[in-house]
Design a protein around this nucleic acid. Structure first.
Lengths: 361, 361
DNA sequence: CTTGGACCCCAAAACGTTTTGGACACCCGC
DNA sequence: GCGGGTGTCCAAAACGTTTTGGGGTCCAAG
C-alpha cells in the first residue's frame, strides 16, 4: 500500500542509500537533494517501516512493563498518570510501550522471560519493587537494561527513581505536630515493600524531634487486606483506644476506608481527627472533606523513567541513574488544629485563602 | 549472544530452511530430524527473533490499545481485569500489546495515526466508544482492523463486544420492584456514550412492565463531574425530594459517592435505601455495606476482544463479530425490602445464606 | 529400464531498512 | 600534471527469519 523506500528512491531517481541518509539528516547528502527528498517523502506520507529498521538496527525500539499481581495497590489515577508520563515520552523518543498485566507471580516471571529472552523489548520498567525482588536479580543476571520505580535491597547497583518517603512523611508528621497534635497514628503499607519503611522512618524522625514518645499501638499496616479495607478496620480499632489519636497518616489508597470508619463513628475529619493521605490524586480532591495529601510527581517520574531506560540501553551505567524525587504536601480540609492548641484558635492550614495550596517539603 | 537460526542449522548440519520448517512443524521434514532439531533448539534455548519473523511475514504480530483521556471512568480493577484478559490471550497467541495513554483528544488521534499509519500494529482495540466516534470513522476509512468494546452509531458495520446494559438494568430494576420499591432513581452515566442509553432503556422497560409511571426528577446523569462526585451530589438532591426514592441504581463508579451522601444524611444503605451499583468489582465487595452490583464479565471480554481482532486481521468480516455479553447481578447487603412490603418481613435477598450470590439475568 | 510419486532436504529470494566501503567529479595547491 | 582533499552519491552487504521452487534419492508400478 503505502510507499516504500525503494519506490520513493525510484520516484526521485536516487538510490535508496541517498534517500535514507537524506531523511536521517546525514551531512554527506547535499542540501538541495535533502530538501527534494524530504518534500517528496512528505508528499507521499512516507514513513520508514519500523520493523525493517528494527531488524537492521538490532534494536526493538520498544520497552516493556509488566504490571504485577495485587493491582489494588494502584489507585486509578496514579496508574494512568504514570503510564501517561511514560507514553508521552515514548512517543517523543519514537519507541513503543509493550505492556502486560500479570495475574499471578508465576505469570509475572513468565511474562518477563518472554519479553527479555524473546527479545521483544530493549529494556523493562519495574514497578512495585519488593524488599527482596527476584525480578531485579533476574535482570541483573541477564545483563538486561531495566529501571525500577522504587528501591529494594540489592548489593549490586541498579537504576531507579523513588519518592523520598522519609522526608514526605516527616513533613506530614511535622505539620500535624505544628497544628498541635501529639497522638498521631500511622496506617502504613505492607512491609514487603521498601517504601513503607521510609514512611515509618520519617514518621519516627518527626516524633523524636518533637520529643513525642513512640507508641506501638499507633502504628499499623494494611498488610493482608486491601488498603481501603485496612484503613477502615484500623481506624475503627485506633479510635477505640483508651487514648485515641487525633492525627492520622495514611498510606496509598487507605484514606477512603479511613473516612468511612470516621463517619461511622460520627467523627469529622478535619475537625475531630486530622487526616493526611498519600497519592490519592483524583479521589482526594472530591472526598468529603477534601483530603490533605502528599503528592509525588507521578507523571514526571513516568517521563524520567523512560529517559533513564533509554540511556541505559545506549550503554549508560545503572549507578549513574539513581534518583530521588520529593512528594509535595497539598493542604485541603481534612486537617485542623490539634487538641493542645485548639483553645488558641489557630487557622486550620498555613494558607487558608486558596482551596488547594501546595508546599514543597 | 543467544543462538541464531543460522548457527543452529550449522550445529545440526542442516540448512536453515529445514530447521525453520522442522520447528514450525511442516510435514516435509522427517520425524527423526524434526525431533533432533527440536531437541537442539530447546538445549540452546533458541527462539526465533520476532523482529525478523515480523519483517518476513509482513505482520507486526502486535495490537494496539489507546486509553482515552477522561480516565476516571475506569475503576481500578475494571481496568486491570480487562487488560488482564487481553494480555493473557495475547501471550497465548504470541502477540504483543502496545499501549498508549492519551492525555487529550488531540493526542489520542495522533497516537492512533502513529500506530496505524506508522505500521506499528496489525489492529487496534477501542474502548469507551462515544455515540459519534471519529476514531471508528478513521479506522474504517483506513480499512484497518479494529474491534470496539461498546457500541456506537455507525452506518457501516464494525466488530464489537458490548454488555447488554438494557437487560442488566432491567433486571436490576425488576429486582428492586420485586422487593417492593416503587420510587426508584437512576444515576446514569454521561450521554456522550452509548451504554447509558441502554441502561436507561432497561430501567424504563422495567417501570413500564410494573406500571410505575416515569418520573423525570428520579433520573439524572453524572455528566460534567466525576462519577463519584456526581453520585454524591445527585444522591443529596434526590433524597431531599418531597417523595424521595427508596431504590437507587448507579452507573460505574458512582456508588462510593452515593454511600457518602447517604451516610451524611444518616441513611443506611440496604435499610433505608436500596442501592445497586454497576461494575465496581473490588470496591463493591469491601464497601459498607457490601454493594449489590451488576458485574459484566470483563476479563472474558478482554480475552474475546483479542480473538476477534486476530480473526479480523486474518481477513474475517466485521459483521460476523458483533457480540453482546450479559452482566450478572451479585446480591450483597446494600439492597433490602421496599416500603410496600416491609411489613411482610421478607428476606433481604433471594438467597441470604451465602454472602455473595450471583444470578444470571 | 523407465516413469511417477513419495519423501526429505536445500539454495536462493524476499521482507524494508541502515551501514559499509568505496566511486566519481571537482577543485586547490604544489 | 599530479596528489590530496572535499562534496555527493551509490552498489552491495547485512539484520534473521520464512517461503518459493525446485533437486535429489528411493521404491514400486508399468
Amino acid at each position: 500500500m503505502s510507499t516504500n523506500l525503494k519506490q520513493l528512491a525510484k520516484l526521485l531517481g536516487l538510490s535508496t542509500t541517498t534517500v535514507s541518509r537524506a531523511l536521517a539528516g546525514y551531512p554527506d547528502v547535499s542540501e538541495v537533494t535533502r530538501r527534494r527528498v524530504r518534500a517528496e517523502a512528505k508528499a507521499h506520507g512516507y514513513q520508514p517501516n519500523p520493523v525493517a529498521r528494527r531488524l537492521q538496527k538490532g534494536r526493538t525500539e520498544a520497552i516493556g512493563i509488566i504490571l504485577p499481581p495485587g493491582q489494588n495497590y494502584f489507585s486509578d489515577t496514579f496508574f494512568t498518570e504514570l503510564l501517561g508520563g511514560i507514553s508521552e515520552t515514548m512517543a517523543i523518543k519514537e519507541h513503543d510501550l509493550v505492556l502486560t498485566v500479570a495475574s499471578d507471580m508465576e505469570n509475572e516471571s513468565q511474562a518477563m522471560r518472554r519479553m527479555v529472552e524473546g527479545k521483544r523489548v530493549d529494556g523493562v520498567i519495574l514497578v512495585q519493587s519488593r524488599l527482596d525482588d527476584p525480578r531485579i536479580r533476574y535482570l541483573q543476571e541477564q545483563q538486561f537494561p531495566f529501571v525500577v520505580y522504587g528501591r529494594t535491597e540489592s548489593e549490586t547497583p541498579y537504576a531507579f527513581i523513588d519518592v523520598n518517603g522519609t522526608r514526605a512523611f516527616r513533613e506530614a508528621t511535622d505539620f500535624l505536630i505544628e497544628l498541635g497534635h501529639r497522638r498521631i497514628a500511622l496506617i502504613n503499607g505492607p512491609s514487603v515493600f521498601y517504601f513503607p519503611k521510609c514512611c515509618a522512618a520519617g514518621y519516627r524522625q518527626a516524633l523524636q524531634a518533637a520529643q513525642i514518645e513512640w507508641d506501638d499501638s499507633l502504628v499499623c499496616s494494611t498488610q493482608g487486606t486491601s488498603p481501603d479495607n485496612g484503613g477502615y478496620l484500623h481506624t475503627l480499632e485506633l479510635m477505640r483506644l483508651p487514648d485515641p489519636p487525633t492525627g492520622l497518616l495514611c498510606f496509598t489508597e487507605a484514606a477512603p476506608g479511613v473516612f468511612r470508619a470516621l463517619s461511622q463513628l460520627n467523627l469529622q475529619a478535619g475537625q475531630d481527627v486530622s487526616v493526611i493521605g498519600y497519592d490519592d490524586l483524583e479521589l482526594a480532591r472530591y472526598s468529603a472533606p477534601p483530603l490533605t495529601t502528599l503528592r509525588p510527581p507521578v507523571r514526571e517520574i513516568g517521563r524520567r523513567l523512560i529517559e533513564i531506560l533509554i540511556s541505559l540501553i545506549g550503554g549508560g551505567l545503572p549507578e549513574n541513574f539513581q534518583e530521588i524525587r520529593e512528594a509535595h504536601l497539598t493542604f485541603r480540609q481534612s486537617t485542623g488544629v490539634g487538641p493542645r492548641q485548639r483553645s488558641f484558635n489557630l487557622p486550620a492550614s498555613p494558607s487558608s485563602s486558596k482551596p488547594d495550596s501546595t508546599m514543597s517539603p
